[in-house]
Design a protein around this nucleic acid. Structure first.
Lengths: 78, 78
DNA sequence: AAAGATTTGTGCGTATGTATA
DNA sequence: ATATACATACGCACAAATCTT
């Protein structure tokens, strides 16, 4: 699912993949997304790349991060 | 303070700016200088440029870098 | 209360690719 | 070809917050 060779940055691909899981209803509002370490294992990426992907999802307003807890799918907006 | 257009390399300008802050007593011996990420924000430069500036300060003997901790103003030499 | 595990936050080290002068 | 500068990506270490035992 993740192309480690192609032109699209890994962190964008990972963010898009998580967004797809949210849109598919696999990841639900107010429920945690996989931890950084889990993303590292699932997608075979570095932690910094996982963090950048999560940061991108935050900027998209899709997730909220809590220190020491994890990152959660944002509550339904409408 | 930083000229992104002029002939002087950015990393030299940033190093000079930090050196000025040390000489002015704004940055004290055995105290940390701004982190790479802070320099990136303060001077609107890339991380690589911040790193080259710090490297230059190291070569000048003005700072000491500790892996995993940060970069510190060198203890008074004389 | 204390200790350990989990998770995010921060910071530096390193390498590669691209673009420009 | 060399120097400068940015973006991406991986690695390692430690701190802080949270949770569990």
């Amino acid at each position: 699912m993740i192309d480690h060779e192609g032109p699209t940055p890994l962190y964008v691909q990972v963010a898009d993949a998580i967004q797809a899981r949210i849109n598919a209803g696999e990841l639900l509002p107010n429920r945690p997304i996989p931890s950084e370490n889990q993303l590292v294992q699932e997608y075979a990426i570095a932690r910094g790349t996982a963090r950048k992907a999560i940061q991108l999802l935050r900027e998209r307003g899709l997730v909220v991060t809590v220190v020491g807890r994890g990152t959660y799918v944002a509550a339904a907006s409408g």
